[in-house]
Simulated scan of single mutants.
Amino acid sequence: MAGLASSGLILRSHTGARYRFDPGALCLELTTTGGPGEFRRFEVLHTPADLAAWAARSRLSPTPDLDISQAEVDTARTFRDALFRAATARATGVEPVRDDLDVINRTAAHLPLTPAVGPDGKRSWAATATGAQLLSTVARDAVELLTGEYAHRIRVCSGERCHLVFVDTSRPGSRRWCSMEHCGNQHKVRALRERRGEKG
């Protein structure tokens, strides 16, 4: 997984509440943009500007100047859906479908983003990059995740009606929630109500 610092993405629940979600890997950040099947209603990647905006919010930030085509946005959605299915399969102890792995591998085969050291000693990126380079970097992170030491710690949030995927990199390996301030807190509230004999 790309060793890049991240404090997580800011997401909004169906009630409008904002919360922070850190999926633990760059590639899993992309799965918050929509998904296959029933998750298509959450789709946010429609234009090159949408994909660039996601990159700016991701742990790749600061991102390079990006020249993204509409075809690369379509590729991003195809790759993301394959990754979503593969990661969810791994989280449930099922082998990912070969076609999904082929999509991930094809995306990773392109040249990735080229990192550079800036005058201030911080990481930057060399030149303007294409959407294919951006997606290759994300796909290579997916390959590392799915084949690495934390592959067995890919999880789906335990919250009711929550399908966010994350990798548990905590030392005890006991993470259950997408976010303690969201699904974790909701679980605590429900448990308290049950102990008190309340409904709802």
Rank of each mutant, 00 (worst) to 15 (best):
T47K: 06
E95W: 09
I68M: 05
V143S: 06
R57I: 03
N105S: 09
P96T: 07
L51K: 01
A52G: 13
V73N: 01
P96N: 10
E38K: 14
A129K: 07
A86L: 07
A116D: 15
S124K: 10
T114K: 05
A52Q: 13
E95N: 11
T75C: 07
L134M: 09
E43P: 02
A109R: 04
S61F: 11
A86E: 09
H46W: 13
S124M: 10
R41I: 15
R59C: 14
W125A: 00
H110N: 12
A55D: 07
L101D: 09
R161E: 14
T107G: 01
G121A: 04
A91P: 05
N105T: 11
G118N: 14
Q70N: 09
S58M: 09
P48I: 00
R153Q: 08
P48R: 02
Y150E: 08
S158N: 10
A82R: 02
D74S: 13
E149T: 15
D65S: 14
P96F: 10
C162T: 04
T78M: 05
I104P: 01
T107H: 02
P96L: 06
Q70G: 09
R153V: 01
D74L: 12
Q133A: 08
R85V: 11
L146F: 05
A127I: 03
T63K: 07
P62L: 02
E144A: 15
G93K: 03
A126Q: 15
E95F: 09
Q70Y: 08
F79T: 00
W125K: 00
R90H: 01
L51Y: 02
F84A: 13
G37W: 06
P115I: 03
R140E: 06
V97G: 06
V103K: 01
H110M: 02
L135N: 07
E38V: 13
V117Q: 09
A49Y: 04
T92G: 05
G131R: 03
R57Q: 15
A56G: 12
D67N: 13
V94H: 13
R57W: 04
T78F: 02
E72Q: 14
T130H: 07
G121H: 10
Q133M: 10
L134K: 03
A53Q: 09
L145R: 03
I104Y: 00
T114I: 13
